[in-house]
Amino acid sequence: MKAKHQRLVLIVIALVALIGASLLAIYALRNQASYFYVPKQMAESPPEVGQAVRLGGMVQEGSLETLADGVTVSFIVGDGEATVPVRFSGILPDLFVEGSGVVAEGRLEADGTFMADNLLAKHDENYVPRELQDMTEHQAEQVVAETTTGGKAE
């Protein structure tokens, strides 16, 4: 193989591999990125059953219940406009309390329950999940007010 050709072939191979990797990455990202929902969006256009998504909102006052096995909890996440029932098996994260924000990673079941694999709550006083930062600015007060009164009315 001539000198110039070898260089060219190397460059072409490298380019093909890198473009292949990028296309694969973009394809996989479209399918595998887990999208963030608030309860309102989940009510209006729910994700496919079993698809990995994140749900963020406020834990309604009075909705937290520990089931008989002692390790599964159920609670309701709301954003003032809609609510979603959530179930989670595991140790509740530090500082997980009713009336505060939470982001749940998991999937929607056919019966409309959100099965959480993981809960991201604030783990110190300053930390707010990234998805909830805007919310706290735009709607937090209103959300908290509505979810708390909503909780009491139930």
Partner: peptide
């Protein structure tokens, strides 16, 4: 791409997280 993708989509107000899957 996986690391920057959430930052890019957030510019268009779509929030995603990219993980092990």
């Amino acid at each position: 791409l996986g690391t920057l993708y959430p930052l890019l989509t957030e510019a268009f107000d779509v929030r995603v997280s990219v993980g092990p899957p």
